[in-house]
Simulated scan of single mutants.
Amino acid sequence: MKAVIPAAGLGTRFLPATKAQPKEMLPVFDKPTIQYVVEEAVASGIDDILIITGKGKRSIEDHFDRAFELEYFLRENGKNDFLQEVESISELADIYYVRQKKQKGLGDAIYCARKHIDGEPFAVLLGDTITSSPVPCTRKLMDVYEKYQASVLAVEEVPREKIERYGIIKGQEVEPSLYSIEDMVEKPPLSEAPSNLAIMGRYILESEIFDHIQEVPPGFGGEIQLTDAMRLLNKIYGVVFQGRTYDIGNKVEWLKTSIDFALDDKEARVELLEYMKNVMKNM
């Protein structure tokens, strides 16, 4: 199976940090955000990845390419741990790139992948969302797809105050934590939300989605919404993700995510906790 990672957004909520670098390249602790996403796809058994980029996103391509001068320097100076880590990045998977020419929404970004997908089912992983769980989220969706032979997406329960930020599903539970989806609404007002189950950036889609993307008019925000196209699928399921989701959607959430990942690192944890204690004392 192939994976598509949309990463063409302008990242305006992170300005000025994203003036000259993609939001997807912002570091979360010790890796750029998009590397975690690629690693999830690889851990799920996918080795063919298409990243949808845009103007000013060249650093994404550079990150997953070889860095001969850096590798030579590390090798000559005996920095073998760093060398191994740097070399492994370029060997993660076969990674391809296509540009979204205009910012016309997630649906349009996915449509840019139609020639690469060539009629196959495929995974979609949003480039600014990180997941953490014993079984990768995408692998779980692949297992459900193999069982039901229908498109499937990941959902999670969100608090009422966050409902208006997400696409929300309406569905019937067919087995524990699995819903047959009847409808989806993009960023509804709380009073109109059919549930508190939010679409959270991981999908397995049948290739017929490309025909539906062509059919739908611009929706919320004047953009081609993937949610509107998915509503036209004959069958689609929603899996309640049992893990942690990190939506790198704004500066505070990005900072929280970086702190969480740093606390998971044995070397950084003790010093970081001590620093945080001292900060709290002085507040």
Score class of each variant (00 low, 15 high):
33 T>R: 05
237 Y>T: 11
181 I>F: 08
98 V>S: 01
204 I>Q: 08
142 M>N: 05
24 E>H: 13
54 G>P: 00
267 E>Y: 00
282 N>M: 13
198 A>K: 03
146 E>P: 02
207 S>A: 14
76 E>K: 02
265 D>M: 03
202 R>T: 10
244 R>G: 08
62 D>F: 10
57 K>M: 03
270 V>A: 09
219 G>K: 10
106 L>T: 04
38 V>Y: 00
53 T>H: 10
180 S>I: 08
127 G>Y: 15
281 K>D: 15
259 I>A: 01
77 N>L: 00
178 L>P: 06
218 P>M: 14
206 E>D: 14
124 V>E: 12
116 H>L: 12
10 L>R: 14
176 P>N: 14
113 A>R: 11
239 V>H: 04
67 A>F: 02
173 E>Q: 15
267 E>R: 07
192 E>C: 10
37 V>S: 03
66 R>C: 03
62 D>E: 06
14 F>A: 07
16 P>W: 09
245 T>N: 13
160 R>E: 12
218 P>Q: 13
123 A>H: 08
50 L>N: 04
175 E>K: 15
170 K>D: 12
88 S>D: 06
170 K>Q: 13
111 Y>I: 07
218 P>Y: 12
78 G>R: 00
133 S>Q: 12
174 V>P: 11
60 I>H: 03
104 K>C: 09
118 D>L: 13
90 S>L: 00
27 P>V: 11
60 I>Y: 04
123 A>I: 06
253 E>I: 00
125 L>A: 13
249 G>I: 01
91 E>W: 02
54 G>K: 05
130 I>P: 09
103 Q>W: 11
182 E>D: 14
167 G>C: 10
120 E>M: 11
211 D>W: 11
104 K>N: 08
115 K>N: 15
254 W>M: 01
272 L>I: 13
193 A>G: 05
85 E>R: 00
89 I>A: 00
262 A>V: 02
213 I>G: 05
41 A>S: 01
226 L>R: 08
146 E>A: 07
269 R>D: 04
24 E>Q: 15
63 H>L: 07
280 M>E: 15
1 M>A: 14
281 K>S: 15
262 A>R: 02
255 L>N: 05
200 M>I: 15
272 L>K: 10
124 V>Q: 11
13 R>D: 14
278 N>A: 14
283 M>Q: 15
274 E>L: 09
55 K>A: 13
47 D>K: 02
89 I>R: 01
177 S>H: 09
23 K>Q: 14
88 S>H: 06
59 S>A: 11
192 E>I: 05
57 K>L: 03
111 Y>K: 15
67 A>Q: 07
232 L>I: 07
190 L>F: 09
